[in-house]
């Protein structure tokens, strides 16, 4: 059995850090782990996707349509964009915050405020959290990624110490305590 997690968001939100923490946790648990990310042009404020897969033996580094057990969305429009990758019965954990994409800024398109409601109406399981508000409370607006990771962590029966240990291993010392705080607040929210 392979478990598939997709982390989606806007370039610059820190999806890579979240995937590295996840990868570390599952590798420590003895799973075969594959992570796939994209660098370069797409990172410049565009829609970004990172895949994390773990299981006994994982071959492909990416997740295809209908395969994701979890989609961790750092922005709600991006949750809607990648819903086709969600497995039947899969879970979306999403930030309820909004970041306008350029077509909305230029007036070429409207931001669909009801994007999550429409997904829920289709029977998609959604767990939303205002991650920016929690991150600010934790001490940094940049911690949206670890807040959401904390929220996602509730879906796995893994002790908190393994997650905070992964943060210790992956995050630079200067930002560790703040990220651990953000993680715990997301986990408890």
């Amino acid at each position: 059995m392979t478990t598939n997690i997709m982390i989606v968001g806007v370039g610059g939100q820190g999806t890579l850090l979240a995937s590295r923490i996840l990868g570390y946790v599952f590798e420590q648990r003895g799973f075969d782990v594959k992570i796939s990310e994209v660098h370069g042009m797409s990172q410049r404020g565009g829609s970004v996707v990172t895949y994390v897969r773990f299981g006994e033996k994982v071959y492909s580094p990416i997740v295809s349509e209908g395969e994701a057990d979890y989609i961790l969305a750092f922005e709600k429009l991006e949750a809607g964009r990648y819903v086709r990758f969600l497995k039947e019965g899969g879970q979306i954990v999403t930030n309820t915050g909004r970041i306008d994409p350029m077509p909305v800024i230029t007036g070429a398109a409207e931001y669909p405020e009801d994007v999550l409601d429409k997904l829920a109406a289709k029977g998609v399981k959604i767990d939303g959290i205002d991650a920016m508000a929690v991150a600010k409370e934790a001490g940094s607006e940049k911690a949206v990624n670890t807040v959401l990771l904390g929220r996602l962590s509730k879906y796995f029966e893994i002790p908190e110490t393994e997650w905070t240990g992964a943060i210790d291993a992956v995050v630079k010392e200067k930002f560790r305590e703040m990220n651990k705080k953000a993680f715990r607040m997301g986990r408890e929210a």
Binding site: G46, L77, R81, P101, P103, V104, A108, E110, P112
Partner: peptide, 8 residues
């Protein structure tokens, strides 16, 4: 949905 192309 509205696209989200990379931007400056």
């Amino acid at each position: 949905l509205p696209g989200r192309p990379p931007v400056m």
